[in-house]
């Protein structure tokens, strides 16, 4: 904890990078609780299409979100190779279905470039917090709170 906290203040922050479709994204490592493999989810009635259902996470009910569909890309077809990132969003815990987790990045704030304004959709702009250029790859930093605003889930 102290280590992470120190990292945040002096050396910038640690981000966890993952692949969804052919794009790379990253979120703050502090919001990630664990990473686990895909298990079939129980479908929920009247749920938005990106809500894959719920799974049992050691006795707790964990909703699984298809991040690809949520971010407006084509819906994922989950296989055993898919990965679930268990993340804390405000007071709730959600599972994000992603294709793969690539690595953990330690970056300082000045490495984060503003989101290019080629992104047209208001929605995409709302969750993108900036982009990173790491070894020629483009990684988009997303904020989970914006991806799952409270009202969004309540309306669902």
């Amino acid at each position: 904890m102290t280590y992470a906290a120190k990292n945040l203040t002096t050396d910038g922050r640690e981000l966890i990078a993952f692949r969804v479709g052919d794009q790379e994204f990253c979120v703050n490592v502090m919001s990630v609780r664990e990473i686990r493999g895909w298990t079939p989810a129980t479908a929920m009635p009247h749920a938005p299409s990106y809500m894959l259902g719920i799974i049992n996470l050691r006795g707790a009910v964990l909703p699984i979100v298809d991040l690809s569909a949520r971010l407006g890309m084509k819906p994922a077809e989950p296989t055993v190779r898919h990965v679930i990132i268990v993340a804390q969003v405000k007071s709730q815990v959600v599972g994000l279905l992603v294709d793969a987790v690539s690595d953990i990045l330690t970056i300082t704030d000045d490495k984060i470039q503003p989101t290019p304004d080629v992104i047209s959709s208001e929605f995409e702009r709302s969750f993108a917090r900036g982009v990173l250029a790491i070894e020629g790859r483009l990684i988009c930093l997303i904020e989970l709170e914006s991806v799952f605003p409270q009202e969004e889930r309540e309306a669902a």
């Binding site: 929920m44 009635p45 009247h46 749920a47 719920i54 006795g59 707790a60 009910v61 964990l62 909703p63 709730q92 815990v93 959600v94 889930r153 309540e154 669902a156």
Partner: peptide, 14 residues
């Protein structure tokens, strides 16, 4: 019984 509301939301009919 496990709460759905804890991590998700109330689902009508469930």
């Amino acid at each position: 019984i496990k709460s759905l509301e804890a991590n998700y939301t109330h689902v009508p009919g469930i």
